[in-house]
């Protein structure tokens, strides 16, 4: 349904362009949840903004292709974008606090979308807004409330109601529950899951919480420094992570059960994207790094059915498709 090929986004700065997203490709099937995991600054949110074409200078899309249901998104003109946004792809932003207008009633903010896109009358839109609040388990009476009168969880639900208003086939959720407590987070994630089953939309789910991501997504793409380094089914990523960064990321979440063991996290700090490391961008922090001739960048390739990994080709014993890689000693893979 959504097809992204070799997407590149640069931020122009005085010191030269900063490539925030560098050659990212992925696709989302109808009804699928694709998780996009990575640290802050790895380019997750930039991708989300690029898909909706809401990037503002100094950020510019410098290359790649985005097709949504066969439509070339990057070629859409400004007036076509108005129909495309929200009708085709809607978005739930991280901080509901900041994405709701503090001086507008909740009802008006939902109705606004309906009046603008569906050309409903004010009254019909208000009626429909009430139904939408119902869908996300908020009392209809809250249509009259201002954002500050709602709790954090309710605000986030209201934002989801706005994103649902036009029943888009794809929703982008950028850290939808990061600012919330775990109990509220669970309620909201369950609700999203129910709605997804009922309304059959796809989700591009962005978060840095690996545990939540593994539970909620069908497939997961791991991003590091503007690139996808690994992409596979959610359970596969968790049970058989191949990239050292993915391993490190999973090793950064202490378990809730089992014996206590030392967790190491990942040494060093995320790179400065103005001057990303040459070759493999993870190499300064990598514990399995091996020198490769000519500082080449590893390429994303399918190493197991449905399991994509960025690694160096042509290393003896590595460039074997199928089972061989799964049982390979980790040092054999060269990143």
């Amino acid at each position: 349904m959504l097809e992204v090929r070799d997407l590149r986004v640069e931020y122009l700065s005085q010191k030269g362009p900063v490539r925030a997203v560098d050659g990212v490709s992925f696709s989302i099937a109808p009804g699928e949840v694709l998780g996009l995991a990575g640290e802050s600054g790895s380019g997750k949110s930039t991708i989300a903004h690029a898909l909706l074409r809401v990037l503002r200078p100094p950020a510019i899309i410098t290359g790649g292709e985005v097709y949504f249901k066969g439509k070339d998104v990057l070629a859409l003109a400004e007036h076509e974008l108005e129909d495309f946004r929200w009708q085709d792809i809607s978005m739930v932003f991280q901080s509901a606090m900041n994405s709701l207008n503090p001086v507008m009633r909740i009802g008006d903010q939902i109705a606004d979308v309906l009046v603008r896109h569906k050309k409903l009358s004010k009254r019909a839109a208000w009626q429909r807004a009430g139904e939408l609040l119902d869908v996300v388990n908020i009392d209809k009476k809250r249509l009259d409330a201002y954002p500050h009168e709602l709790s954090g969880g309710m605000r986030q639900r209201a934002v989801i109601a706005i994103a649902l208003a036009l029943e888009p086939p794809l929703m982008i959720m950028d850290e939808p529950t990061t600012a919330l407590d775990v109990v509220v987070q669970k309620e909201i994630m369950q609700q999203i899951e129910e709605l997804k089953e009922k309304m059959r939309f796809s989700i591009l789910f962005i978060t840095h919480d690996m545990s939540l991501m593994v539970e909620f997504s069908n497939r997961i793409a791991i991003m590091y420094a503007g690139e996808i380094v690994e992409l596979a089914g959610a359970r596969e990523v968790f049970e058989n992570p191949l990239h050292p960064y993915t391993k490190g990321l999973i090793n950064s979440f202490p378990p809730l059960t089992g014996p206590k063991r030392k967790m190491t996290g990942i040494p060093g700090a995320p790179p400065n994207m103005a001057e990303p490391p040459k070759g493999c961008r993870f190499h300064p922090r990598c514990t399995m790094c091996q020198p490769v001739e000519g500082e080449r960048r590893p390429k994303l390739q399918e190493v197991l059915p449905g399991h994509w990994l960025a690694y160096h080709e042509g290393i003896p014993g590595v460039n074997v498709k199928g089972q061989a890689v799964k049982n390979l000693n980790p040092p054999g893979l060269v990143f």
Binding site: H208, L249, S252, P254, K262, M263, T264, G265, I266, A269
Partner: peptide
């Protein structure tokens, strides 16, 4: 950032 949290805890 997630990857450096464990370092501080350790």
């Amino acid at each position: 950032d997630v990857s450096i949290r464990m370092g501080v805890l350790n």
